[in-house]
Nucleic acid binder design. Structure first.
Length: 596
RNA sequence: GCGGGCGUAACUCAAUUGGCAGAGUGUCAGCCUUCCAAGCUGAAUGUUGACGGUUCGAAUCCGUUCGCCCGCUCCA
């Protein structure tokens, strides 16, 4: 169950303490855009820096035990518009939506994700059903491919399908396009369970149902009858409309059709477009990866759930290039590596899961995809933080085709070895033509296969915020249990690593504390606080998730009766335990616990 | 896009039938305080989202508009 009360408390805290603000708040805000305040920026930066450090600078060893080759990149947000034609975003990143006009229904349907069912007046024979299934399978596959490939002219693609369907459908005339069902049920309809489903849909009547894409059904409504809303069941659907999710802008001061450009909807295409540059300049060899952290933009139909679905968001993406025969090994590697990264940083509970996508969910070019998902307090279901996708060589193929450039990888090492082996065996030297012939294809020249771990930085930040929020009880000075709000960030992610307090504002304690504070701030984010009672200061730091509080007391300054002169207390946020540490060792003590 | 809900201090929320815009928390200043907030004193902060209307008088009623939240839907 969604815990809205929890979410409201977290959102209030984020505002009150300066983690997250609404964008342009003084003007009433703007939906789908958010600002990170002084603490939020530290938290998000820590997450991005960790990612960069753990994935690019010092990645774990590969599945073969060898060092991983990873390099970084920082691409522009606006690219040549042809990029988006090649990637499929220009054509396919637009969802055909259809709304129901019934007063109390108003359902909104993704037309490409729904299929219609038609019923035939006469029962079919087993052979006819088999034939029907085969044809349907083919049609559905083609339709899905057309959608995911982002065919530039979806209309004509649909018409082709309809013609094909009509040719077949002279077998029987459908009675009525009755309902719309989710694509996940399509397998059931198009395969052997026809009769079972038939019963489910039309009781014990003998009509045989036939399913086909919603858009096709809509176009054929004059022949087959009206398409009904899946929710209210009435024939009240409006004309399907395109929802384009690309942000548009213009280059140059004069706006014309040809000046139109797009803000990138993902950082990945910048990597693919620079893949050849990286190969040519940085001495990397396959397998290797390129990582990038950067903003991306999508005109979400309806941004919701705090920062979870923003229209401007930040991604942390890797494109890992490898040989196709090793690709499933690398896919497994990245799938596990990325999941472990989250658990190591504290998303360790049952709220985090690794889920393999089903065949239905996969894009047509994708061989496998795993989602790393988090159960946010605002949702009933797990939501995606990151997708690790096996993309085959789809992207590079597309860019090679559209740019006209050869994006093949040439394995110089393997080629040299091949030539040397021939020589050793005393085989005759190859002619120029033979060399071009053999060296011009696999295994020496080929388009690499790509594994893409693509993480949402803002989603990750939000997940870490949700995971950190705790209310527990701690005793006050009278020993009475009091509720306290504590953000239990992993020390590596905590926006403030430590706070320095003088126990009281006299006897030289402020001076000593200030000196320690200034020394620590050279290497980490620390705060100095002398305001109010010590307990109040502890609670303030608990609320922003500072893992360690250092107090300068009588012992530190060697007051009369001190048994541990020159030591401070370091209080731990989660356990409330205190440690006595020599003031000169504080920095080392903290660094040991916070890590690099 | 459609439907519903809602806009009062930094946060959480009051304000009787239309009658002087308030409280708690937080923040700031000072005092007190030798280790876990709700000790003391004081202070600042509001064109009640905006515009218009009704009225002697509007946070409150009406209209318009802007924005936010929820549902349908999408996704990193």
């Amino acid at each position: 169950m969604a815990d809205t009360a929890f979410m409201e408390k977290l959102v209030a805290l984020c505002k009150r303490r300066g983690f997250i603000f609404q964008s342009s708040e003084i003007y009433g805000g703007i939906g789908g855009f958010w600002d990170y305040g002084p603490l939020g920026v530290e938290l998000k930066r820590n997450i991005k820096n960790r990612w960069w450090q753990d994935m690019i600078v010092n990645p774990p060893a590969g599945p073969d035990g060898r060092e991983l080759e990873m390099v970084g990149l920082d691409c522009s947000i606006i690219m040549n518009p042809q990029v988006w034609v090649a990637s499929g975003h220009a054509g396919g990143f637009a969802d055909p939506m259809v709304a129901c006009k019934t007063e109390n229904c108003n359902a909104l349907i993704r037309a490409d994700q729904f299929f219609c069912v038609a019923y035939f007046p006469v029962p079919m024979t087993g052979t006819e059903l088999d034939e029907l299934s085969t044809v349907l399978d083919g049609l559905i596959r083609k339709f899905k491919q057309a959608i995911s490939a982002g065919v530039e002219n979806g209309e004509s693609e649909l018409e082709k399908l309809i013609t094909e369907f009509s040719a077949f459908s002279k077998l029987q005339t459908p009675l009525l396009v009755k309902s719309v069902i989710a694509s996940s049920e399509i397998e059931a309809i198009a395969s052997v369970t026809l009769t079972k489903l038939e019963r489910k849909l039309v009781g014990e009547s003998s009509k045989s149902p036939l399913a086909f894409p919603f858009s096709a059904a809509y176009q054929m409504r004059n022949t087959f009858g009206p398409v009904c809303c899946p929710r209210c069941g009435l024939a009240s659907l409006a004309t399907p409309r395109q929802f384009n999710l690309m942000f548009e802008s213009n280059t140059g001061a004069v706006r014309t059709e040809s000046s139109r450009v797009y803000l990138r909807p993902e950082t990945a295409q910048g990597i693919f477009c620079n893949y050849k540059n990286v190969l040519d300049t940085s001495r990397v060899k396959i397998p290797f990866g390129i990582g990038q952290v950067g903003k991306a933009f999508r005109n979400e139909i309806n941004p919701r759930n705090y920062t979870f679905r923003s229209r401007e968001f930040e991604q942390m993406e890797i494109e890992f290039f490898c040989r196709d025969e090793d690709s499933m090994m690398w896919y497994e590697f990245w799938r596990n590596t990325r999941f472990k990264w989250y658990t190591d940083l504290g998303l360790a509970g049952s709220k985090l899961r690794l889920r393999d996508q089903t065949k239905d969910e996969l894009a047509h070019y994708s061989r496998a995809c795993a989602d790393i998902e988090y159960l946010f307090p605002f949702a009933d279901d797990f939501q995606e933080l990151e997708g690790v996708a096996h993309r085959g060589c789809f992207d590079l193929t597309q860019h090679a085709k559209h740019s006209g450039k050869d994006l093949n990888y040439f394995d110089e090492e393997g080629w040299a070895k091949f030539l040397a082996e021939r020589k050793a065996k005393g085989e005759p030297e190859l002619t120029k033509d033979q060399k071009a012939e053999i060296g011009g294809k696999a295994p020496y020249r080929f388009l690499p296969t790509v594994i893409e771990p693509s993480a949402g930085a803002d989603r990750g930040t939000l997940a870490f915020l949700c995971e950190a929020y705790h209310e527990d009880t701690a005793p006050d000075e009278k020993g009475v249990a009091q509720t306290r709000v504590v953000m239990r960030f992993h020390p590596k992610l905590a926006p403030v690593k430590a706070a320095v307090f003088p126990l009281v504002n006299k006897e030289g304690m402020p001076e000593t504390a200030d000196k320690l504070y200034k020394e620590l701030k050279r290497e980490m984010v620390v705060q100095y606080d002398d305001g109010g009672a010590i307990g109040r200061r502890y609670r303030r730091q608990d609320e922003i998730g500072t893992p360690f509080c250092i107090t300068i007391d009588g012992e530190t300054i060697g007051a009369a009766g001190a048994t541990n002169p020159g030591t401070v207390t370091i209080r731990e946020r989660d356990s409330l335990q205190q440690h006595r540490v020599a003031i000169g060792s504080v920095k080392a003590w903290l660094k040991e616990r916070i890590g690099d």
